[in-house]
Structures are given as C-alpha cells and as structure tokens.
Amino acid sequence: MKFLVCISNVPDTTTKITFTPDNKEFNKAGVQFVINPWDEYALTRAIELKEAQGSGTVTVINVGEADTEPNIRKALAIGADDAIRVNAKPTDAFFVAEQIASVAKEGAYDVILMGKESIDYNGFQVHGMVGELLGIPTVAPAMKLDMSGNTATLEREIEGGKEIVEVNTPFVASCQQPMCEPRIPNMRGIMTARTKPLKVVGPVGSGARTEVAEYALPPKKQGVKLIPAESAGELIKLLRNEAKVI
C-alpha cells in the first residue's frame, strides 16, 4: 500500500510570534522550525500501518522552499521511505492542496494522511480540498485509523462525540490524537535518512485564492486583579457585577 503523508514546516510551539515591520510576514529570525505537531500523528500512523502490512511505502510531501529540508530529513529519519518537496512558498491552503493533489494523482497513492491543521495558519482546510480535487472521501479530524485490506475504519471527532466511519482506498484523512504515540528519530534512522531519496519538483496549478493583507497581535490584557484566597467568594461577585459574565 502506498501512503502519502503531508507535512508542514511550522514555528516551534513555544515560539513568541512577531512579524516583519510591515506586518505582512512572520518574522523567522531566530525561530526554530519543527514538523507540524499534528502531522507527526499522520506520519507515525502511516509508518505503523506499513510495518503491520509488511510491505508498501511511506512518502512524505512538503510544499516549501529549501529551508524546510531539515524537517523533511527528520521525517525520513522517523521512518518515511522517500520525500517530495514542491519548491514553492505555501501561500494559501488552496495552493498547497493543488500541489498535494497533483503529486497524489501522479503517484496513485492509496492513503493520504496529514495533520488536522497546521499550528501556524490553523486553516483545517487542506484535507477537504485535496479530497474534493481528487474526487475521493475525506475523514476529518480522525482520532483512530485501522486498515483491513483496502478498507479503513476511522473514528471521526464530532462536537460532543465521535462517528465510526468506513471508507475504501483511496481516501484522505486528517489526523489528531489519540491516534498514536508520535515517534522520534533514532540514531540508525538519522544515518539512513541522509541517503533516502528527496525529489524536488516545481509548483503547478492556478495559484492562491486568498492573500494576507496584514498580521496583528491580539490586544494585551489589562493586568490581573488578585483576590485574597480567604475571601475567594468575592471573585464570584466581581464576575457578576464587574465583568458581567455570570
């Protein structure tokens, strides 16, 4: 079975977010980039399923410029077999979805996995766009994924519960916990990753449908009002009379 896992290159979760002086772009200076944490579930689960099946391949795809390659190598070190980088700036979800759909079609992948969303853009869009571009089902967000032959059984999170969904390959799923325990690379993986194939291709498609005009930071809090623990009940009065939220 052929798995395609989509990974994003995102600022580490502890990053303090700042922008360039014109507020048009994220300020990358001094920021460490990681594999999008949601995508790690997709990657690890694909590797686990491949191992359970005893055959098949896991290909990683990233839409990004050359500075994303350290994290593509990391994905190879975790256990992916090969990688494709679409050499372009990931301008919006639609642009990225067109790249993934094109690669997926050409490679005839059976299972296309990605994280629920990226922690930078927070779009939660690419999965459905890829599914629709390819005319195949999407299950999002998936908390569990098991395969039996060409049939997958997934648990899809809904507000307040879950749905059990069965789909046949090919399909797209966007992944979140508790799907698996994301793996970290071991020394052997890091050594072999250096020689695994990483193909660079050019972008396709009709371009982005959205443009970021400006970024802003959320308004700052006024500062905390402390209430002594002995008179904790006072807090409730403040919440009613001052903040007016209860």
Partner: peptide
C-alpha cells in the same frame, strides 16, 4: 485567528 490564537491575520478573499 492564526498562530494558534497568538496572532490575527487580515485576509483578502480574491475569488
């Protein structure tokens, strides 16, 4: 909302 609630983005919908 963007950057997991740490920022806001003004986005132009060109379609």
């Amino acid at each position: 909302g963007a950057y997991s609630g740490k920022a806001l983005a003004d986005v132009v919908l060109t379609g």
